[in-house]
């Protein structure tokens, strides 16, 4: 279970998160919705451990383990996965090499054996087929020359390969057409199960018709201001975020 209590954080000295309280029980998928600038991406970066996001108070634990004191790679080894809103291009780093290095790092962390190049290709090809990704994306530089949709699918491919326990999807729907959105959602839904949790961050309700959440939270000005069932997303879509309401 992901448990966040009283989390405050600053970026460049400016307080962005102003006391987040949130629990995502194991096996559940929660959505976080909110307008631009409400702190959605900051929350995801703080949970993943990005430099420049300073935690000034509160706690975040995953299955009882403190996340905030750990290096990003240690969080990944615990099973935390951040699907980036803007996946980074890595010119000169081959996608296959990147994926295999990441997969083997996470496997080592789980006490599993590493995959050799042949074993890896077999696994990767199968996942890529499910995501309708052309095989030559393995040969290219990581995200280099990928369209917005290809980059997002590459994120979902990484998630499918690394099989995290907690996925944080930061606006994975942005830049996706409806077909790509379905494919990406299928990738997430395939991981759903009693041991998998997800925090789906999105601006729009659209994604949540494909990844149906157990709970929806509204983030505004650095705080969760409302929480509810999946129907809350529809309500927000109809009436907008409006003025902050009492939680």
């Amino acid at each position: 279970m992901l448990k966040i209590e009283g989390l405050t954080a600053t970026v460049d000295g400016k307080e962005i998160l102003k006391g987040i309280d949130l629990e995502v029980p194991t096996g559940e998928v929660h959505a976080i919705m909110g307008p631009n600038g409400s702190g959605k991406s900051t929350l995801s970066y703080v949970l993943a451990g990005r430099d420049g996001y300073e935690v000034t108070g509160g706690t975040a634990t995953f299955n009882g383990v403190d996340l905030l004191g750990k290096a990003p790679e240690e969080r990944a080894a615990l099973g935390v996965f951040l699907a980036f809103q803007y996946p980074v291009e890595l010119p000169g780093v081959g996608n296959a090499n990147f994926l295999r290095t990441a997969l083997n790092a996470v496997r080592r962390g789980r006490g599993e054996s590493e995959l050799d190049a042949m074993q890896f290709l077999k696994v990767a090809r199968a996942r890529m087929k499910e995501l309708s990704m052309p095989e030559d994306m393995l040969k290219r530089g990581v995200n280099v020359g990928f369209s917005g949709g290809e980059k997002k699918r590459n994120e979902v491919l990484q998630m499918a390969l690394l099989a995290p326990k907690l996925a944080i999807l930061d606006e994975t729907d942005s830049g996706l057409d409806i077909d790509a959105l379905k494919i990406a959602s299928d990738g997430v839904n395939a991981l759903r199960g009693p041991d998998f949790s997800a925090l789906v961050i999105t601006h729009y309700q659209r994604l949540l018709t494909y990844i149906v959440p157990d709970r929806v939270h509204v983030l505004m000005a650095g705080r969760i201001v409302r929480s509810g069932g999946k129907e809350l997303a529809l309500e927000l879509e109809a009436s907008g975020y409006g003025a902050p309401q009492a939680a």
Binding site: A48, E73, F81, A102, A105, G141
Partner: peptide, 21 residues
């Protein structure tokens, strides 16, 4: 950060980026 968020330790991530450079 992108590499480390995928579980790759800092030293390996740095060496991958130097080679890419």
């Amino acid at each position: 950060f992108y590499l480390r968020a995928r579980g790759i330790d800092e030293a390996t991530a740095r060496s991958m980026l130097v080679r890419a450079f």
